[in-house]
Design a protein around this nucleic acid. Sequence first.
DNA 1: CTAATAGTGTCTATTAGACAGTATGTT
DNA 2: AACATACTGTCTAATAGACACTATTAG
Lengths: 274, 274
Amino acid sequence: MNKVYNSEEEFLKDYNPDDFKKLSMTVDILIFSVSNEEVENYRKTDKKKMSILLVKRDNYPFKDKWCLPGGFIGIDEELDEAPKRILKRETNIDDIYLEQLYTFGSVNRDPRMRVVSTSFMALIDKNRLKENLKKSASWFDITLYEEKNNIVDIVLDNGIETINFKIEKILREKTTDRYSFKVLNNDSIAFDHPLVILSGLERLKNKLEYTDIVFNMMPELFTLGELQQVYEVILGKKLLDPAFRRIIANKVEKTKMMKTGEGHRPSYLFRYKK
Amino acid sequence: MNKVYNSEEEFLKDYNPDDFKKLSMTVDILIFSVSNEEVENYRKTDKKKMSILLVKRDNYPFKDKWCLPGGFIGIDEELDEAPKRILKRETNIDDIYLEQLYTFGSVNRDPRMRVVSTSFMALIDKNRLKENLKKSASWFDITLYEEKNNIVDIVLDNGIETINFKIEKILREKTTDRYSFKVLNNDSIAFDHPLVILSGLERLKNKLEYTDIVFNMMPELFTLGELQQVYEVILGKKLLDPAFRRIIANKVEKTKMMKTGEGHRPSYLFRYKK
DNA sequence: CTAATAGTGTCTATTAGACAGTATGTT
DNA sequence: AACATACTGTCTAATAGACACTATTAG
């Protein structure tokens, strides 16, 4: 039975914070960006791909496997500050779009001890951090293959190494869009990070349709063709030009500048409308 | 510098899980339902309101204040199992719709020690637990007043007591729909639970438009008028009958049963379409 | 000239909004 | 009969999808 106290001060003086077994918390960050894949034909535009920043683990557990940038939360650190600190450490940039995604708390997700991890999604224009990257970090291009039976095949490629894992999506209940994820094969990614990556990609896809977050991944100036390509690669489908332009018309403003030298008609540069 | 190990076993043997200061985690559950407010006029239908289950704290901190049902996560308990356990304890029902919302981790949100809390949203048809409620728990009807300057005034009423708090919503960045919340006045709710309540209400409102979660709050059989009222009270606006019926037409199926005795034309009972 | 993308005009199909009208129970 | 809600028909407005067409550059 609880002892009864007469004031909050009295209660706190008597309180032993170690009555419950404590646990560790980490944050993991999905740093997304878009990259250009050069194409041999001088006329064709570069093919855009989603890309994600991974770091190679240099010690156990999961030594030599790739994982999301992350780290432990300080006992006196705000939950929202931890991912900012880690982003600063990894990219040396402060003002990056950051959003909390989901908290993963399976009992055995870390072999060391009980660790609960909150995942965040960061969106950035990759050009902003050309040479700031740490050596252990690498950008991986993402390709998603949606197979039948709700199995998703995810291929990550950093130009040197190709990583591949499959996840089965199981609808949890018929009233929502929520899935349970089951990792079918994964040899190269640490922890439960395959789940984190897929759920981040799905969140991004979702939010694309009702927010303007895509502009956090765009440079200051861009053509509508480039913007459309980014939409297409995230949504995983082609869009019709006129429809696309109608929808984003009031979100962007045309500049007088043009992008030329691409082997075809130049296009106007636009910026996100303040 | 990290010591280098030759295998994961070797590493784990040497690993001291107490190198980092640990913290406590709790879960808080927003248990939402709808209630009927009786109306004097025998012809008129009952007015529906959103309601939420709160419990009165019987000890410090925040003694005698109302808070969300919740509790500490066991060191060997899955994060998703904790809210199920607590729901079972509070309502004695197993199959309740449950969804993770957001993790709150301000350093000083609990005066005892560092506590990070993951909030969940549960949706239930209140009629399923008529007499199962614990004595300390109480259903509060929710009324939301959206004032100018992005201030929301929230009034909770359990028939005996009226609680009121105001929250200012501050848009975080122009590319999204995300707000920072600032509690302006709150005398009766414990912890940061005013924030949790508001963010849950917003999530519910959002999800109403692209999922079928509303049916988790409905009884097996309902009239379209009742369903429309629930939509209206969550969305905070009136809907036009023909438009509403067009939209939900393929989600429900008509039965041969009718609801009569309401002082006006009877209506068919529908059920959620499997 | 050709290949490739940029950008627009317009028709059609679909969906959402609005309003008016008819239907049918209770008291 | 009066009231309140149930339910439907239909017109209009707005939006999305489809396709064809013109424009403009580098090579």
